[in-house]
Amino acid sequence: MTSFLINAFKRLHLSIVPNRIISSGYATAVTTSADAISVTQKEWKFPPVYTKPREVWIESLATVEEIKLGLFELHPLVYAAVPRIDIIHRNVVWQKKYRWVSWAQTKTRAEVRGGGRKPWPQKGLGRARHGSIRSPLWRGGGIAHGPRSGKTHFFMLPFHLRIHGLTSTLSAKLAQDDLHIVKDLEIPSDEPEYLIDLIENRNWGPSVLIVDDTDIAPRNITVATETLPHVNIMPVYGLNVYSMLKHDTLLLTLSAAEKIEERILHHLHSITNEQQAEFKLNQI
């Protein structure tokens, strides 16, 4: 019965040629309506199959008040994944641990000064037998099994958990309205007060992480954020789960959002045998 049905479908399929849209790269078609709000329809290399793309407003930093410049589509595989809190947590733990070297140090009985002489004879005094005054049993003696310095806590989180951590955090940020997309990072003045006003006005919370595609941000925003410890700029390749959670709001430029999407989609659709292989310290 089942095999009959399958054969029927196999035969059916011969006449149906799947209508695939294969576009090279990220061609974007912009349609501008009368009131100058651009709606961007994207053509992805890996189009979303079932879930609808996410739409976000493109904002601008040019004024303190919020202006909407247009609509922008984000890929659901990257910006609307299931927000797995446990995977986010594992990423944060990994980021804390891989650079942590514990310098806690205690002296063993060999390192504590003195104690080379037998304190009293083995027999004849009626006292307990002891061989060294720096034995761990003694007050002022060495520590048995104490921490030794230079212990690394380095480990590598599996590749796809790292990818999933990024998508989970980006999706959670977007779902909680903590992810904003701006056209560029141009601001009219280099005063930090301008940025403080803007963040206050748009209710972005005090701390903001700004992510751009380029290594060199425009002058005004660099000068304005220099004295603000809670507003930070980061290139797109530095994006990580810990920093995203550390800041209240994540601010992506259009090009950064596209770049993140492209890189993560690339990893989700390529052969990752090498990245998934066991991490070896000498692999460079």
Binding site: A80, V82, P83, I88, A175, Q176, D178, L245
Partner: peptide, 27 residues
């Protein structure tokens, strides 16, 4: 919809930050 459901649930919850995440219980 599974994903939609979890994302809309997370909308009404406090902002995810370093202080309020944890691993699955018993993991």
């Amino acid at each position: 919809q599974i994903t939609e459901k979890s994302l809309s649930m997370i909308r009404s919850l406090p902002r995810i930050s370093l202080g309020n995440i944890r691993d699955n219980p018993g993991s």
